[in-house]
Design a protein around this nucleic acid. Structure first.
Length: 963
RNA sequence: GCGGGGGUGGCCGAGUCCGGACAAAGGCGGCGGACUUAAGAUCCGCUCCAGUAGUGGUUCGAGGGUUCGAAUCCCUUCCCCCGCACCA
């Protein structure tokens, strides 16, 4: 019967489902092990990249189960927020791209599309038809009783408890925060809603409050507030539209566009009157820091749609400003039309505010000259600016006039300086994007400030707790620990609510919804009880209920009995042993997870480990559902079977490494599994009179009565098996799925290949050995290819691999001597092969000469003395017989010293006790088959030496002659 | 810029922590052979250069150093990838 994955896999899926095999309850035997993975977000279908995300924890879960643990691996569905709503809206609008993703990429049937026109209908479709189906097909060992969605009423009660608790502990705070806001739809928007500017970042400009002659404020926008003492003049766009308006009760002059932005950013805007930029030109404005008056000059490079449309000029430090001023001076006479005295323009001098190594008094001039910038349009200008800004930021030291800031680098004092003058009222602030942002509706998107609730991730106590948690966390791989620590240091306040979307309403303000990264931080606790909440009315799941559940009897005045019962479930499973998640989530989601656990639960229930996963590529390119560049798990499974898909995903790279799904490679993995299956079937069908190691969770003793006579080559294979078991076990302890499966599958296959070649398989001992090895190997493979492994193990031994358990290393079967001896056989094979190959002859007779006794005693001397030519020589030369041999001995010592130096001590000790000739003599039969020749093992000193080769023999490196 | 990861043979990818059997596992691809009517599957060998004897030469981004010995340790340098906030 040939390998038919669909047949095997269907049967096992059905069996697991019927038996509820992976349903885990506290009353079962074994250590409680709780493994979680981020619940999928069904805003689209599942592709093979997702498949790996869920298979990695599954492998670990299966491994722990084989080790005897009671393992809980649950799953649920994350629907919070706007992505699903956005997807539904794009569908309803009939957007081509969206329709194509649904129809072509995810194969949604035409008649089903209308079911997807509500958010939960959409989610439900992908949950049922993609994720759940896919996960079942993959054979994930999930306890399906516990699934839920984050839009469920009871889940919301749990999140409500979480947020009320955090608020009560002062970890939530209300404040203003910049958001992306569509000026056309008058609504905040998310990155998904954007047509252009998805990459745009928020940038905060400092507004330096220059004062006009009439007392109105001209707020000059700058990213370099510390240059304020170097301002020589201001620029406006003479053709731009400006307005005089009341801002927070003051009179301001800004560009037309700036007014709207300021209004969005929480400023009170009053009646305005229009004027043109030209009207402003020539005005004198006063620097709020220095009190100096400077001229407003016209400049076409000023963009009225960026910040305030009024900019200050610092020619000493800005190459742009330096060039602009040069050009202004050249055109000074034209300025007269604005009523400016040309002499006043020509009189403007750069004012340096800092010194920076490598530049003179006016760094901008040096930069312009160095890059040979000719005009404002010269592309070299940007390079010059970049270079100078960088140097000044890191190395520029402020001059005396800066008082307490003098002598400091810009990098060190910019923020302090800015905040200082902001408090004193000289500076303001304004947010702007780094590039234009356009909504899908076509409207301009601007920065708006919105009242919102924050999680205070920068709270000192909270940070300290979380850092303590990180310190004790098992971070896999270890080098991710630094990333968590860094994130804790770097996280500020996090706005945790949105204006709309699915999920849980903010308990004390129903207008807002708790956003997805904030409602998924402690839900692992909910898994422990999710399957037992049906009989509890949501209305009764209040603060006291959850307090009792998580904090015990004393937490509420009248503890709810039901909550106390559920508490046992929670107590049993918590803490989470491992969470398996993607590496790009360290900087937010995973660190939030740590924060919330650190706060809400006591130390004993803090997360114990996190394993990070890498990204997936498809044929070397990033997967993308919108481009249809994805492989669906169902399709891959139909073609190759779930075992192949799993095996490939786990074997091609360690979980945290990026991997590449290449059809060719998957197909090859499938071939490997098929060959494995065929060979295993042969072993099974061949049968064996002896016990194949059925109830073999306990290692069998060497002298077990039913164990047939074993030859050294059998012992060799069994010894190798122990090494493989050890390696696979250690690897899986650290989530190294690649190392583990490589060992269990490929390394073991290598050993078997040699064994099949080397051993006479037509013996009872060989059949027993092969069955014994197969049983162990199937159990090592069970986490990776559970269908195949369980099926074959059941046929071999009458019980499934998962029931048989993980094999233990049987130290009594580890035999270094037998391994060393076999390695001699192997290297002699290689040597003969090399000679055959290089001479191109097909030998009829192969003569193998082992080294003479005196050479052997030189070897022993080298081992005893150590690899030191001089020392060995003096020892050796004291022996008259050896001294007689002169140069011959010298050469041999050289060679043996080198050999010995490179060997492990253990191996040397074994070699010393090895009678080389016996090893080769035992293998003569093998050599004769191998080379189809008459093979003779001889002593160097024997007579038969037609090729005059015998003298070349060295201990453990016999001379060879072929003819 | 900040934080993290990485550069190995035609390709993918181990090895690097703890230097030594490393011309460097394994896979893919290629070549030759066995089996076969043939193809496929399977098995064996070869696949940096030279070679009718197991050898020698030159390799692990680049340059330098430590060592009897370096892909592995140290220094310098070049290049690539990922994340960086309200987006899940």
């Amino acid at each position: 019967m040939s390998y038919d994955p669909a047949d095997i896999e269907t049967r096992w899926r059905e069996r697991w489902r019927q038996e509820g095999y992976y349903e885990a309850d506290p009353d079962e035997d074994g250590d409680a092990t709780f493994i979680t993975v981020p619940y999928p977000y069904p805003s689209g279908g599942m592709h093979v990249g997702h498949a790996r995300t869920y298979t990695v924890p599954d492998v670990y879960a299966r491994y722990r189960r084989l080790q005897g643990d009671n393992v809980l691996f649950p799953i649920a569905w994350h629907v919070t927020g706007t992505p699903i709503i956005g997807a539904v809206e794009r569908l309803k609008k009939g957007e081509e791209e969206q329709l194509s993703v649904l129809r072509d990429t995810y194969n949604v049937p035409e008649e089903t599309l209308q079911d997807l026109e509500t958010p939960m209908g959409f989610a439900r479709y992908f949950i049922e038809e993609h994720y759940k189906k896919g996960m079942r097909q993959l054979g994930l060992s999930v306890d399906w009783r516990r699934e839920f969605t984050t839009n469920d009423e009871r889940y919301s009660k749990f999140i409500t408890w979480q947020y009320r608790t955090l608020k009560e502990r002062g970890l939530l705070e209300k404040g203003l925060h910049p958001v992306k806001y569509c000026t056309n739809e008058d609504n905040p928007v998310t990155t998904h809603d954007l047509l252009e500017g998805e990459e745009a970042e928020f940038q905060e400009y400092t507004l330096v409050r220059f004062e006009g002659e009439d007392g109105a404020i001209l707020p000059m926008a700058t990213l370099r507030p510390e240059t304020v003492r170097g301002v020589t003049n201001a620029y406006v766009d003479p053709d731009g539209d400006y307005v005089r308006a009341t801002v927070d009760g003051e009179r301001w002059v800004v560009s037309r566009q700036a007014v709207q932005k300021l209004e969005l950013q929480d400023h009170e805007i009053g009646g305005d009157s229009e004027l043109s930029g030209a009207d402003l030109v020539g005005e004198r404005v006063t620097n709020p820091i220095t009190g100096d008056e400077v001229l407003v000059l016209p400049a076409s490079f000023v963009d009225t749609d960026n910040a305030t449309g009024v900019v200050m000029s610092v020619p000493a430090h800005s190459p742009d400003d330096y060039i602009a001023l040069q050009e202004a001076k050249e055109r000074a006479d034209e300025m007269a039309e604005y009523g400016i005295d040309p002499e006043a323009v020509r009189a403007i001098e750069s004012v340096p505010i800092l010194t920076v190594e490598g530049y003179g008094e006016v760094p901008a001039r040096d930069a312009v000259e160095e890059y040979d910038v000719s005009s404002q349009e010269d592309p070299a200008l940007e390079e010059a600016t970049q270079e100078l800004y960088n140097r000044e930021f890191h190395q520029g030291r402020l001059l005396e006039a800066y008082g307490e800031y003098a002598g400091e680098t810009v990098e060190d004092v910019r923020e302090r300086f800015r905040d200082d003058y902001r408090e004193r009222g000289a500076f303001g602030a304004m947010q702007e994007f780094t590039e234009d942002v356009v909504c899908r509706c076509g409207g301009a998107v601007e920065v708006a400030k919105q009242e919102t609730w924050f999680l205070r991730y920068n709270d000192e106590d909270w940070m300290a707790k979380t850092k303590r948690l990180v310190g004790d966390l098992d971070t896999i791989p270890e080098n991710t620990r630094e990333q968590y620590t860094h994130t804790v240091d770097w996280l500020n306040e996090w706005p945790c609510i949105r204006n709309y979307g699915l999920g849980t309403r903010l308990p004390w303000d129903e207008d807002f919804v708790i956003e997805p990264l904030s409602d998924s931080t402690v839900y692992m606790a909910y898994y422990t009880i999710a399957h037992r909440l049906d009989e509890i009315p949501p209305g009764e799941m209040d603060r006291a209920f959850f307090d009792t559940l998580f904090y015990g009897t004393d937490a509420a005045e009248a503890p709810d009995e039901r909550a106390l019962e559920l508490r046992e479930e929670w107590d049993h499973w918590y803490p989470v042993d491992y969470r398996v998640s993607a590496n790009d989530l360290i900087s937010n989601h995973l660190t939030f997870y740590l924060y919330h656990h650190a706060e809400l639960f006591d130390e004993a229930n803090w997360p114990e480990g996190i394993t990070i996963m890498g990204m997936g590529l498809l044929e070397g390119r990033k997967m993308s559902s919108s481009k249809g560049h994805v492989v669906l798990p169902g399709e891959a499974i139909d073609e190759y079977g779930a075992d192949t898909v799993r095996f490939f995903l786990l074997n091609s790279a360690e979980p945290w490494q990026d991997y590449d799904w290449r059809d060719e490679a998957v197909s090859s993995a499938h071939g490997q599994l098929r060959r494995f299956y065929n060979r295993a079937t042969e072993v099974i069908e061949q049968g064996s009179p002896g016990d194949p190691g059925v109830r073999a969770a306990e290692p069998r003793e060497h002298d077990a009565p039913d164990e047939p006579d074993l030859r050294p080559i059998d012992e060799w294979l069994l010894s190798k098996l122990q090494g493989v078991i050890r390696e696979a076990t250690e690897a899986l302890e650290g989530f190294e799925t690649r190392t583990a499966s490589q060992a269990a599958f490929y390394a073991m296959e290598e050993h078997l290949r040699w064994y099949r070649r080397r051993a006479d398989l037509d013996r009872e001992g060989a059949r027993w050995t092969l069955r014994h090895v197969l049983s162990r190997r199937l159990r090592l493979l069970a986490p990776f290819t559970p269908f195949l492994a369980n099926e074959l193990h059941e046929r071999l031994a009458g019980e499934s691999a998962e029931d048989a358990g993980w094999p233990a290393v049987d130290e009594s079967r580890e035999d270094p001597t037998v391994e060393v001896r076999e390695s001699l056989v192997e290297s002699l094979t290689d040597d003969i092969n090399d000679i055959v190959d290089v001479t191109g002859t097909d030998p009829d007779v192969v003569r193998v000469y082992t080294a003479a006794d005196w050479k052997r005693s030189v070897f022993e001397q080298v081992v005893e003395t150590g690899p030191d030519v001089g020392a060995v020589m003096s020892e050796v030369m004291s022996d008259p017989d050896l001294r007689e041999r002169g140069d011959e001995v010298n050469d041999l010592v050289q060679e043996l010293v080198e050999f010995v130096r490179e060997q492990e001590d253990d191996r040397l000790a074994i070699l010393e006790g090895t009678e080389e000739a016996d090893v080769y003599a035992d293998a003569v039969g093998f050599y004769e088959r191998e080379f189809d020749a008459d093979v003779r093992v001889l002593d160097e000193t024997g007579a038969e030496d037609p090729g005059d080769r015998a003298g070349d023999a060295v201990p453990f490196r016999p001379a060879i002659h072929i003819e």
